[in-house]
Simulated scan of single mutants.
Amino acid sequence: MFLKDRVYIIAEIGGNFTTFDEAKKLIDTARDCGVDAVKLQTYRADTIASREAMFDMENTGICSQKELFRKYEIGKELHKEVFSYIEAQGLDWFSTPSHESDVDMLEELGVKMHKIGSDDATNLPFLRYVARTRKPILLSTGMCTMSEVREAVDAIVGEGNPDLVLLHAVTSYPTHPEDVNLAAMQAMKREFPEISIGYSDHTIGTTACLCAAVMGARVIEKHFTYDKQAEGPDHMLSADPKEMRFLVQGIREFEQMRGAGIKMPAKGERTTRLNNRKSVVLTADKKAGARLSADDLAVKRPGTGIAPKFLEQLVGRRLVRDLEADAVLRWEDLQ
């Protein structure tokens, strides 16, 4: 599922649809953008939030969490229909469960991996429950300290499930540039060198995701919408089709550009190494037997002759044949 040299790109559509037709439109467009997977959010208002829980964020304003979740929760049959359609498009599918009953439902539907949101990153009993499915886990770490990330890792791995990806995230909607802190992603990689690291994004635009890929993210998750002005809290911070296509193409181009990390001439430099480098040449016509002085020698293109680093070694050598000015010297021309 995750390839060593290829960033895994997820279009998160949870919260951006409530009907199959809306989901289908998102899936079709995400497929055309070239993503690897489409992800949902699986929750029920009654099990994710109490009556006292409130939102107070830019994208929601102040409102009841339970009422907002109730508005966007989707049932098992719609999950099944949407997952089936995603798979038919040749894309991976999975979801973010928020309760043990959500996990059970996703397991019944045949999910191949689970995403755990930042809100449950310190919910150790839940982490252990998900870990016992023995499915790969993507864990968002928004709001976490490093010690809390360690506790989460220990809980999951301690259940015998090492198939884990840690996602740096910032639980602000939207996340502003000064809060992104992509270096924390690399800090987690240093802390957990055996675990793959990725980035779950809540910024507006694609810059953070592109930078995260360059900085070593193996997984990129980005909210996705067909219309930033659509009703719903996540549309404003989601990538639209133009942005997602730009993001996917940018990451794939980066992967081509990244190379193997060995400093060596590129294939395209095989000819230019000869044409654009320089060699030692004669400054004037010279006869066979002539002894070369420093004034007889210059350095010019092309690089098909004796390299300039040997210039001083040529002073005092004799020519074995007549040569004209600008002739590129080769070792066989000298004695």
Score class of each variant (00 low, 15 high):
residue 102 D to T: 03
residue 250 G to F: 04
residue 73 E to H: 06
residue 231 E to D: 12
residue 5 D to E: 14
residue 221 E to Y: 00
residue 145 T to P: 00
residue 277 R to P: 02
residue 192 F to V: 08
residue 291 R to D: 08
residue 69 F to I: 02
residue 56 D to E: 12
residue 180 V to K: 02
residue 40 L to S: 12
residue 322 D to S: 12
residue 300 K to Y: 07
residue 168 H to Q: 12
residue 42 T to V: 06
residue 16 N to Q: 12
residue 201 D to V: 00
residue 267 K to L: 15
residue 18 T to I: 11
residue 193 P to C: 06
residue 62 I to S: 13
residue 2 F to W: 12
residue 317 R to W: 01
residue 248 V to C: 00
residue 170 V to D: 03
residue 29 T to G: 06
residue 118 S to L: 07
residue 283 T to E: 04
residue 257 M to H: 14
residue 25 K to T: 14
residue 155 A to H: 04
residue 190 R to A: 14
residue 79 H to R: 11
residue 202 H to I: 01
residue 72 Y to K: 08
residue 149 V to F: 03
residue 315 V to D: 13
residue 250 G to W: 08
residue 129 Y to L: 07
residue 171 T to L: 15
residue 175 T to G: 07
residue 255 E to G: 01
residue 59 N to I: 10
residue 76 K to D: 12
residue 184 A to V: 09
residue 209 C to T: 09
residue 39 K to Q: 07
residue 298 A to Q: 09
residue 205 G to Y: 01
residue 282 L to K: 02
residue 59 N to P: 03
residue 144 C to Y: 05
residue 9 I to E: 00
residue 306 I to S: 08
residue 81 E to G: 10
residue 302 P to T: 01
residue 154 D to T: 11
residue 190 R to L: 15
residue 88 A to R: 10
residue 152 A to F: 06
residue 225 T to K: 01
residue 236 M to A: 13
residue 272 T to K: 04
residue 326 D to R: 13
residue 89 Q to M: 14
residue 181 N to G: 09
residue 180 V to T: 11
residue 222 K to T: 00
residue 247 L to A: 04
residue 331 W to K: 00
residue 184 A to W: 09
residue 287 K to M: 11
